[in-house]
Amino acid sequence: MDLHALQEVLEHIRPSVVFYLGPVRITTTVVNTWIIMAILLPLAYLLTRRLGTVPRGAQHLPEMVAEFFHNLLEETMGKEGRKYLPLVGTLFIFILFLNLSWFIPNMKPPTTDLSSTLAFAVVTIVLVQLIGIKKKGLKGYIKHYFQPTPFMFPLNLLEELVKPVSLSLRLFANMFGEKTVVTVLFLMVPVFCPIPVMFLGIIMGVIQAFVFSLLTVIYIANLIKGH
């Protein structure tokens, strides 16, 4: 493959500028995130409009997700884990929809852009640190950096700093790789060949969204329980 083919592949994946808002470039990433939000908000309203004690019909769907994360939080943190359900559940559902948005034709999914996944990761990690400060107090929070011995301080600091990088790169690289493989296959053999990889893409999207929220749960649990 020469450089020309590479340009063609990347053109399908890289976010492009839609319009300018003053000096700010509004790329397809932002616009597609807005579209997903526009889909997700009415959907959430419709699904939770008439909540019954006994779920029926479409109410099963959100209840399944909520129950799954409820159980997960209770297993890892006990009773106090319940109040983090909105955070973790929202992250899961939002990232899931962003990941699966590339089945809409001509849509560049926002998670194939590093800036959007980095935003997710930074927001999550800052929130986790704030939760830790609130739970342990400022003194206890600083103390946890020196936990086993004071020698461990650089390593502990490094661990906290690497978290957002690995969290964002994992999501980004998974979705980017999936999309690249499908695009290359599509350019070589347009008929039938990309379909198995696209199925893999569905599974990957669900698993990556789950891994992102699972890691959030584990970071919170680590900070609350302490070493």
Partner: peptide, 20 residues
Amino acid sequence: RTTLILALAFMEALTLFSFV
């Protein structure tokens, strides 16, 4: 299962870093 998925994700991440 939960632990396995987590461990697999960590291993997968290294491949993906090299992919990037």
